[in-house]
Simulated scan of single mutants.
Amino acid sequence: MRVIRVTADLTVPDLDEAKAFYTDFLGLDAQDMGLDWVTRVVVPASGEHIQLLSRDATGPENPLLTVKVDDVDEAYATAQRLGYEIVHPLTTEGWGIRRFFVRAPGGIVLNIAQHHDPNE
């Protein structure tokens, strides 16, 4: 398994208010994800981004980071083998992501994810 990208997930009480702060004040571009509980703001020149979420749609708690990987099934098997706490089981979500949540040392919850082609 190889890590492709790491994204900060910030829990906010009001998505619209938070999105306005990051776009109007910091000049980031809003990227609509088509979901009512999460949005992304992007640094125009570099593509770096932050995800803003009110609550995770299916997970029992909000993650602090999303780690995109090239093989989420391998990551899940490795996390289980190493005895890490699985907070949300490996799931193929309707919005095109296959993911699970794992608790890292210190209690931080990570969303380990891979884009998924629903036609597979």
Score class of each variant (00 low, 15 high):
46 S>C: 01
51 Q>L: 11
19 K>I: 14
43 V>M: 09
4 I>N: 11
101 F>L: 13
36 D>I: 00
44 P>H: 03
96 G>V: 05
24 D>A: 11
119 N>P: 00
52 L>W: 05
109 V>W: 00
64 L>R: 15
31 Q>G: 00
93 E>A: 09
68 K>E: 05
75 A>W: 10
51 Q>E: 13
120 E>S: 06
28 L>D: 06
103 R>M: 09
115 H>D: 10
120 E>Y: 00
8 A>G: 03
75 A>P: 03
100 F>V: 04
70 D>R: 07
75 A>D: 08
73 D>E: 15
97 I>Y: 12
68 K>R: 06
33 M>F: 06
18 A>L: 08
28 L>I: 04
38 V>T: 14
37 W>Y: 15
31 Q>A: 03
77 A>C: 04
9 D>Q: 04
77 A>L: 08
39 T>P: 02
11 T>A: 15
2 R>V: 06
101 F>W: 13
13 P>L: 12
42 V>S: 05
120 E>N: 09
20 A>Y: 02
78 T>S: 05
100 F>N: 05
69 V>L: 06
93 E>M: 09
21 F>M: 11
55 R>V: 01
81 R>C: 01
56 D>L: 01
78 T>E: 12
77 A>V: 10
45 A>M: 02
119 N>D: 08
60 P>G: 15
71 D>M: 04
109 V>L: 01
105 P>E: 05
33 M>L: 14
24 D>S: 09
91 T>V: 04
13 P>I: 07
44 P>D: 08
55 R>Y: 13
93 E>W: 03
14 D>P: 10
116 H>N: 04
10 L>H: 08
37 W>I: 11
13 P>M: 14
80 Q>A: 04
3 V>H: 03
46 S>Y: 03
20 A>V: 11
7 T>W: 02
24 D>E: 15
29 D>K: 09
54 S>T: 10
55 R>N: 11
4 I>M: 07
91 T>Y: 02
14 D>T: 11
80 Q>K: 12
106 G>D: 07
89 P>A: 14
55 R>I: 01
107 G>M: 02
60 P>W: 12
109 V>M: 03
115 H>G: 02
104 A>H: 10
81 R>N: 11
70 D>W: 05
64 L>T: 15
105 P>C: 10
91 T>I: 02
39 T>C: 03
25 F>W: 12
56 D>T: 10
70 D>G: 02
83 G>Q: 09
27 G>C: 04
40 R>I: 12
94 G>Q: 09
2 R>E: 13
41 V>S: 12
88 H>N: 14
8 A>T: 05
21 F>Y: 12
9 D>S: 00
22 Y>W: 15
76 Y>T: 00
97 I>Q: 15
63 P>T: 11
102 V>K: 15
118 P>F: 07
72 V>E: 07
60 P>Q: 14
69 V>Y: 02
52 L>P: 06
27 G>S: 03
39 T>I: 12
42 V>Q: 07
80 Q>N: 06
7 T>R: 03
6 V>F: 03
41 V>M: 13
63 P>F: 08
85 E>Q: 14
58 T>Q: 10
66 T>R: 11
94 G>L: 03
104 A>D: 08
59 G>A: 14
29 D>N: 13
74 E>S: 13
